[in-house]
Computed example of a mutant assay.
Amino acid sequence: MTDIQWEAPFCGEGNNCFRLGTDTEGNAYIAIAGQEDHPLTDTREALTRLILDIKAGKADHLL
C-alpha cells in the first residue's frame, strides 16, 4: 500500500473522527480514525470541499 502521511484526527460532536492524508504522488485519502488501512481516495480538492461542507453543517448527517 502507498505510504500515506495522515493529519491529526478531526472529531465531530459525537464519537465520529476521521483523518485526511496524502501520499508522495499527491493523492488524497480520508479514513475513519483507527481504520486508516481502508481509506477512500479522491483529489485533495474534493476531500477538502467535503470536509469544509461537513464542518459548515451542510452535511452533518454524514457524521
Rank of each mutant, 00 (worst) to 15 (best):
D53Y: 01
C11L: 08
L20P: 07
N16I: 01
D42S: 15
L50Y: 13
L50R: 14
L47E: 09
E25T: 15
N27G: 05
F10G: 00
M1F: 07
L47N: 12
P9H: 06
A33D: 15
I51R: 14
D42K: 04
H61C: 06
G34T: 08
T48C: 08
N15F: 03
D3I: 10
T2P: 15
G26V: 10
L52D: 12
K58T: 02
W6I: 01
P9A: 06
Q5N: 09
D37M: 02
E45T: 05
L52A: 11
I4W: 05
L47D: 09
G12D: 10
T24L: 10
L52G: 01
G14P: 02
H61Y: 15
R49E: 11
I4R: 08
F10R: 11
A8P: 01
A8C: 00
E7D: 13
D42H: 12
L47G: 06
G57F: 07
T43G: 14
G57Y: 05
R44Y: 06
R44N: 08
M1E: 08
W6A: 02
I32S: 08
H38C: 01
E36D: 09
A28P: 04
F10E: 12
I51A: 14
M1W: 02
C11W: 09
D3W: 00
N27F: 07
F10A: 09
R19D: 02
I4L: 08
T43Y: 05
A46C: 04
K55F: 11
I51E: 07
E25A: 15
L63F: 12
W6H: 04
A28N: 07
D37Y: 06
A46I: 07
E7V: 00
L40N: 07
G14R: 13
D53T: 03
G34W: 06
R49M: 11
Q5Y: 04
I54T: 02
A8Y: 00
K58N: 13
I32N: 08
L47F: 09
H38I: 08
R19I: 10
C11D: 00
M1Q: 05
A56F: 06
W6T: 03
E25L: 11
G34K: 11
R49I: 14
A33M: 00
A33R: 11
E25K: 13
E25H: 11
M1N: 03
T24E: 15
N16E: 11
R19C: 15
R49A: 15
F18N: 12
I32Q: 14
H61A: 14
I4Y: 08
D3C: 00
F18G: 12
E13I: 06
L20W: 05
